[in-house]
Deep mutational scan, measured.
Amino acid sequence: DAPDEFRDPLMDTLMTDPVRLPSGTIMDRSIILRHLLNSPTDPFNRQTLTESMLEPVPELKEQIQAWMR
């Protein structure tokens, strides 16, 4: 099983494109984008959230890719 820090906190699946929300939570980009289609909010604190506020986490993405090899 993947380490917890590699798993999306909402869907508990392996992240492939991790992004940091303004709240500091790291999620998979595809999952948070799907959530934003229904509700333009951070799913953990209900603060306003837009796609432009998502910050890529390239170092975590590299760690996940290395773990998958």
Rank of each mutant, 00 (worst) to 15 (best):
S39A: 08
V57A: 08
D17G: 02
K61V: 08
P58T: 10
M27G: 01
N38F: 14
D17F: 07
Q47K: 11
P3E: 03
H35M: 12
E51C: 09
I31N: 08
S23H: 05
L37P: 00
D12Q: 14
R20A: 05
R34V: 09
Q47P: 02
L49P: 00
A2R: 05
T25G: 06
I26C: 07
P58W: 09
D1G: 13
T48G: 11
E5N: 13
D17V: 04
L54F: 06
N45A: 06
D4G: 13
R46S: 14
F44P: 00
L21V: 02
A2P: 15
P40H: 12
L14F: 08
D28W: 06
Q65S: 10
D4Q: 15
T48H: 15
L33A: 07
L33N: 06
E51N: 07
T48C: 14
K61I: 07
M53W: 06
D17R: 04
L54T: 01
M68S: 08
L33F: 06
D4K: 15
S52Y: 12
E59M: 11
T16W: 12
D28G: 03
D4F: 15
R29C: 07
S39Y: 10
A66F: 11
S30P: 11
M11Y: 11
E55G: 05
D17L: 04
P56H: 07
R69H: 13
R34A: 14
Q63S: 10
Q65L: 15
G24S: 04
R69K: 14
H35W: 15
T48I: 13
E59A: 11
R29E: 02
T16Y: 12
V57D: 07
E59V: 09
G24E: 01
T16G: 07
M27N: 00
T50M: 10
Q63K: 15
P58I: 09
T48W: 15
S30L: 12
I26T: 05
Q65V: 12
L14M: 09
D4T: 14
Q65N: 11
Q65D: 15
V57Y: 08
D12P: 03
S52H: 12
I31W: 08
R20C: 07
N45I: 06
Q65C: 13
L60Y: 02
R7F: 13
E55K: 11
D1A: 13
N45E: 06
R46G: 15
R34G: 10
P9Q: 06
I32S: 00
L10Y: 10
P43Q: 02
P56L: 08
S30R: 12
P3A: 05
A66Q: 13
I32D: 00
T16F: 11
D17Y: 06
S23F: 04
P18R: 02
H35C: 10
S30G: 10
N45V: 06
F44N: 02
F6D: 02
P43D: 01
T50A: 09
E5G: 10
L36P: 00
G24L: 04
R29F: 08
V19T: 04
V57G: 03
R7C: 11
E62W: 12
F44M: 05
N45S: 14
M15N: 02
L14D: 02
T41V: 09
M53A: 07
A2W: 13
P40D: 10
I26M: 03
E62M: 13
